[in-house]
Design a protein around this nucleic acid. Sequence first.
DNA 1: TTTTGTTTTAAACCTTAGTTTTAAAAATTG
DNA 2: CAATTTTTAAAACTAAGGTTTAAAACAAAA
Lengths: 203, 203
Amino acid sequence: MPKKTLSTKEKLLAAATELFIQKGFDRVGVREIAAKAGINLSLMNYYFQSKERLLEHIFEKIIISKATHLKQILDSNISLEDKIKKYTTEYIDVLIDNPLIVSFFLAILHRNPEKIVAMASIRTLYNSEVFCKQLEDEMKAGRIRQVDPEQVFICIVSLVIFPFAIKDLIMDRNNFSSSEFNKFSQQRKEVVSQMVLNFIGLK
Amino acid sequence: MPKKTLSTKEKLLAAATELFIQKGFDRVGVREIAAKAGINLSLMNYYFQSKERLLEHIFEKIIISKATHLKQILDSNISLEDKIKKYTTEYIDVLIDNPLIVSFFLAILHRNPEKIVAMASIRTLYNSEVFCKQLEDEMKAGRIRQVDPEQVFICIVSLVIFPFAIKDLIMDRNNFSSSEFNKFSQQRKEVVSQMVLNFIGLK
DNA sequence: TTTTGTTTTAAACCTTAGTTTTAAAAATTG
DNA sequence: CAATTTTTAAAACTAAGGTTTAAAACAAAA
């Protein structure tokens, strides 16, 4: 375990990240962050220049850490069927481990759409050219039916991500415990890939 | 046009509703609301007791006004195929007209899950017993294949709602204008119902 | 018209939030 | 050791946010 002593900056980032994700940016105070990190208040503006810039730092870090691997799957050189299965499966795994990042991401997106959309990491990671091209190739080759690649991609992310945005609602509706919700999410891996593969005419 | 003169309360509600939906509850100040409504600041606490209670009022009103009709479709006595088509179609129409209520709803849900989940109107409207029962009946009768009704329902709402939560991202990715996004949403009506009907084995 | 109750107003109040400052103490580095 | 960087505590500042007060304006009832 190489993380016995966290640097001040790391403690600060860890505390702020957790609080932002849990409570939402606007509902976390700087004094609360400093207290949780066990550091002095002034250090927040010493390392980052403002609460807003701290958020930008954290937001980008989260996106990159979670989405890079998923993007690689999308861009990889494997069959369409395997790709769809792998992508949905591993995406759901990420969200089971971090269900709250969905609400966090959507809140920040709603808060400042232009800025988020302009971010380099977003433009790089939230992009599916390779995947869409692959769909078009399969269509031309007559191996799948005619579909709009963008629609297919939006379907996949909708099916994967949205349930985590309404996790509390789903849990309440079905009297799910947290682990039962996770079981439900595990089952979704199969549901989602089946549904998408069916739709494009594979299987 | 019977709404020439709005009462103070109505002006207040209209202004607050628009601002809350546009900017998010935490990013709207009471003075901004009063200014937009063209009323005195104190009247906000005169009619409602606090900003928080104003939110509750507005939130419930929005949910009821938008979701009641959709719930009726879900509970109606029509064929499964027609029901799925009608529900997705009219749901998408509602969201094309009010794309921002998605982010608004999700933000409030994230902000206070327990409270939202406990709301009577939510419990009533976000419930699909009739629909799930209908699915089970069709399964027993062998007219559709074996599926988990809850999974199917979650798939439908995910496919319908989520694209509006990431509207800005989708528009940016595809260089969509707002009206092009609406065209994309119109096309989704067919995509979503096809995908769901395919999955359960109808069509 | 006077009375009564409601609606509206202007102003101030109080708290919190983010940020900055200062001056000193620790820790680190060369 | 000297020099630099990091950390601390405390206070102060500024702005904004939600809330309250007390009086004025208004409308309806007597």
